[in-house]
Every structure is written in C-alpha cells, then in structure tokens.
Amino acid sequence: MPLFSSPPKSVCFLRLSAIGDVCHAVAAVQALQQYWPETKVTWIIGQVEAQLLQGLDNVELIVFDKKSGWSGMKAVWQQLQGRHFDALIHMQLALRASLLTLGIRAQYKVGFHRKRAKEGQWLFTNCKITDTASTHVLDSFFSFIEYLGVPRTLPTWSMPISETERAFARQQLDHKPSVIICPAASKDERNWLTERYAQFADYVVSQGYQVVLCGSPAPREQLLAKQIADLMTQPVINLVGKTSLKQLTAILGEAKLVLAPDSGPAHIATTQGTPVLGLYAHSNPKRTGPYFNIEDVVSVYEDNVTKQQGKPLTELAWSTRAKGADLMQGIAISVVIERFEHMMKGVALND
C-alpha cells in the first residue's frame, strides 16, 4: 500500500549532493509534482548544487553549507522553525545528512531499505522504501516517490535554464556541430588518459565536428584541459572554468554528443536529452552511468571489480567500487572511437 492515498500537503526532499545525484533527484521531484501538482515541495540542497537548480519550478530550495558544520545545520533548522511536513524524503546516506534530519519535523521520515542504509541512515527514519533491487541510482530515487504513491514513469526533466543562458551557449558554439568533452571526474584516478582525450578530440575534429572542453574552475580541471589542448594537433575551444553551472547545462544541451568519465556533467547532459558516451572503470555504469546511454558506455569496471573481489558481479554489493589509480588505462582509444562512430551513425552534421 502506498503511504498516501490522497495528495500530501507538503513534502520535503533531502539530497545535498553531488551534481549527478541531484540531477537524478530532479526527475523524481518533478514526477511527484506532475502527479500531485498541489503538493508543496521543499528541497534541502548543497550550496554548489543550488547554483544549478535555483529557480526550479514550484520548489522551495533551502541551502545547506556542508562546510559550516553545526552552525549550518542550525541555520537550516531556523528556516524551518514552526513547520511540519507530511513526509521527509531522506535520499542521502551520509551521516551528516542524517544528523540534519533531527531538526526537521515530519510525520513520516522515509529512508532507504535497511539493506542499503549505510552510515546508520535507518536509525533516522521511521519508514523504509521496499526497494532492494534497483541498480541505477535514479531508479532507486523513483522508488521513494513510488513508496509515497506516485506511479512509476519514464524520467523527464525541466531544468531552470533561461533563454539568456541558452543564447550564451549558442554564441559560444557559433551554431557549429559540436562534441563536448568534460574530461574531469571528481577524482583524478577516474579521468581517462590525457593523451587519449587529445587523440579522441583530434579524430572528432577530423570528422567535421567542433570540439569543446568544458569543466569547473578548479585548478586541476584547468590544468587537465590545457594539457589536452597542448597535445592536440587540431583546433579546440577550451571553456573549462569559463561557465556557470547553468551556462554549462545550456552548452551541453546544444551538443551533438558529450564524452565524459563518471562525473556530474554526464548526468547534466542527460537532463538535456544529449547523448552521452561515458567512460567507466571504478564504479558500476549500471548504477551511475548516463541513464539513457548505459548501453553506450565504454567500461572496464566489471573486469576490474570481479578480478579484485574474486566474485562475479551478481554476488557483489550494488555499490562495490574497483580500486586503483591506473584502471582507466584499460579503456582503449580504438574502442571509444568505435563507440562514437556507432552513436553518431545517422546523425547529420547540420541537424
């Protein structure tokens, strides 16, 4: 039986980070809004992630600064003083997020099934979703709203990107058919090899596309982009560190294809309907891959993790990671080019 037989008056979502997971959560939040348009939605979210989602239709964002510790938690609780939600949807396993729930009043506090509730999350909730089988993070997020009473649908997104940001993207790409490379993951070991990014980019330019490098202003990302550009023999546009998150989203939306390792931009591109060629070695792409392009991922994850664990994938926990600083070396340039050609077959340059 679903938790609610009629629309709840108010629901609070708690998902602070990271960018990719927040993109998955948007689809679940908007599916709830489509089914229960009268339900008031509040979302407690991280500071960086809020930059992407500011202006999300009919969603009250309450920003939590993770770096501020207890004072940040108290600031959130103060904003919610005197308020009581019909349900709190606790979508984050980190202990810090669970502690944050202590000052949020809700009749039902819904968390992951105990089999999946790491860091003692189950201690902070009074309802558990039944889902233990979903592989992909997005599907497990949809299990939360299904538990409330919202029927399962295909994920869709309406991101708060303005016409100004869309115009910026068109101007930067100059209306040319573009392939975007977002080379940096959150950890350097999850990046593909610099020279292979450069080789792939040169090949793509030779096929008539413009290549654009995108990423955050982090020094390590800017250095990686410079190294890729320096190794290339063909021209490249380097926008790393030169866009806001919303401008980046608009640019990804204008692309013919996005190449990325396990990273936020891969999932942002999915929200824009842009095909994503994902590169995976450390995490299971069936769990964290670009949702509509899982079959297009180039992955050496299964080989690595089964070798390291000595067990087949079916016997491993859904979140098991492969470990090692050189695993991405296993992804050959020839395989990535072959996958690119397959994905672009039938796509006209001037569409």
Score class of each variant (00 low, 15 high):
S5P: 05
K9A: 09
L14P: 02
G20A: 08
D21E: 01
V22W: 04
V22M: 07
C23N: 07
C23H: 07
A27K: 06
Q34G: 14
P37R: 07
D57K: 13
V59P: 04
D65W: 00
K66T: 00
W70I: 03
W70T: 00
K74T: 12
Q79K: 15
H84A: 13
D86R: 12
A87I: 03
A87Q: 00
L95G: 07
L102V: 11
V110A: 06
R116M: 06
Q121Y: 08
L123Y: 11
F124M: 12
I129F: 00
T130Y: 02
T130N: 10
D131Y: 00
D131G: 01
H136E: 10
L138E: 03
D139M: 06
F142H: 03
F144V: 01
P155N: 10
T156C: 08
I161F: 03
E163Y: 05
T164N: 07
A167R: 10
F168P: 03
V179N: 00
I180F: 04
E189W: 12
L193A: 14
E195S: 14
F200W: 11
F200V: 15
A201R: 08
Y203G: 11
V204S: 11
G208R: 13
Y209T: 12
C214P: 09
P219M: 06
Q227Y: 05
Q227F: 02
I237R: 01
T243P: 05
S244L: 00
L245T: 10
K256P: 10
V258F: 06
P265M: 01
I268A: 02
G278N: 11
G278K: 06
H282F: 10
P285R: 06
I294Y: 14
V298L: 15
S299N: 15
S299P: 13
N304M: 13
G310L: 09
K311S: 10
W318M: 07
S319R: 10
G330V: 01
S334A: 05
V335R: 06
V336I: 11
N350P: 01
N350D: 14
